[in-house]
Design a protein around this nucleic acid. Structure first.
Lengths: 190, 190
DNA sequence: TGATAAACGGAGGGTGCCTCCGTATATTAC
DNA sequence: GTAATATACGGAGGCACCCTCCGTTTATCA
């Protein structure tokens, strides 16, 4: 029995995926009743299974966050062929707002203080994401759809700032999307 | 027996005070082991007493916060006679950093979403505080110790921004104080 | 198809949340 | 001073969550 070569059991992979999905659903909202036991219940697995896959809250957070960002990167790549590019950008930014909501919710609910390790992960993912959406921005500049002095940073930091400044609540998303859309309008080439 | 006219029992007032003090000590740090039961233990009262005085987390938060801000206002008044005024301002701002730390800690530990009621309280207290420290700023401008274009808002919003931007942790206070001192230096009249 | 490494689930011990109520005491009236 | 009573106290108790541990189940591999 070669333990290193053995394929991971199929139920393990499946349960891991279900747990990440459940964690996003249950915890990201951050509402009352959010708990790791609730996550396990939602994923329809035992609490022990949750802890085996994710020994710490941090590990669970990282898994959800990583998956979300990966999807955001894929989305940016997929949108590269869409036109007008500005519309593609708008779609992408709306997805980014979802990410901010999820991240804030998770951090709040799990009451985590970012550790050194998570900061490193954050930096790596953030870099890759920036590169992916950077291509969209460059393209939009090239086609003349947006002002030429706009950078990826302008866009991302504004979305983050707006998203974090607004207090969480039922109106959060609508409010943030509205402001973000105004900003996107402002980016249009005159 | 006129229930409305009766003086509050002395032990009640005392315990209330002890609870507020304990809440500040135990919760503001926000570290693990922070809990309402821990607050009651620290205050040396039963858990029932805590809940009688502060039926909700919000109520406890408000009591601590209000007391802190009142003290900050008194401090500003007391410092009006100190000179140089810039030194008085510096002392006051350091106390403000403590408040930001406490407030962040409490909100985090109690995982509160500000309600309408607390926002109103916040606005009222914030206004009174601004007025009190505003006199210090005005005076410092008059004596020529700081640049004449400095406003109270410049000072307060910078302290808040710096305080909230920096992630909580053991280095938080040192870091924030350093940045704030740099800003204060920058305020000096040339 | 059997052996076994890997994964599962949930009981259980500890803690926190909040309520409820019997007990204790500060205040008031006389 | 003392009795009456409004007021406050403390903590037991019921419930949920946290996390660990381990007996049971199952997917993989020979």
């Amino acid at each position: 029995m070669e333990s290193a070569g053995r394929k991971p059991r199929s139920d393990a992979t499946r349960n891991r995926e279900r747990l990440i999905e459940a964690a996003k659903t249950v915890l990201a909202g951050g509402g009352p009743g959010a708990s790791l036991e609730a996550v396990a219940r939602e994923a329809d697995v035992g609490i022990g299974t949750l802890y085996r896959h994710f020994p710490t809250r941090e590990a669970l957070f990282q898994a959800v966050y990583r998956r979300e960002v990966e999807q955001l990167i894929e989305l940016a790549n997929a949108l590269e062929v869409q036109s007008p590019v500005l519309e593609a950008l708008r779609n992408w930014v709306h997805a980014l707002v979802d990410l901010v909501e999820t991240k804030r919710g998770l951090l709040g609910t799990l009451s985590l203080v970012p550790t050194e390790g998570s900061k490193a992960m954050y930096a790596e993912l953030s870099g890759r994401m920036q590169e992916a959406v950077g291509r969209l921005v460059t393209q939009a500049v090239k086609t003349g759809e947006i002002r030429s002095d706009i950078t990826v940073d302008d866009l991302l930091s504004t979305v983050y700032a707006v998203g974090y400044a607004r207090a969480p609540g039922p109106e959060w998303k609508a409010h943030v999307l509205r402001l973000v859309d105004i900003f996107l309008d402002g980016m249009k080439a005159t």
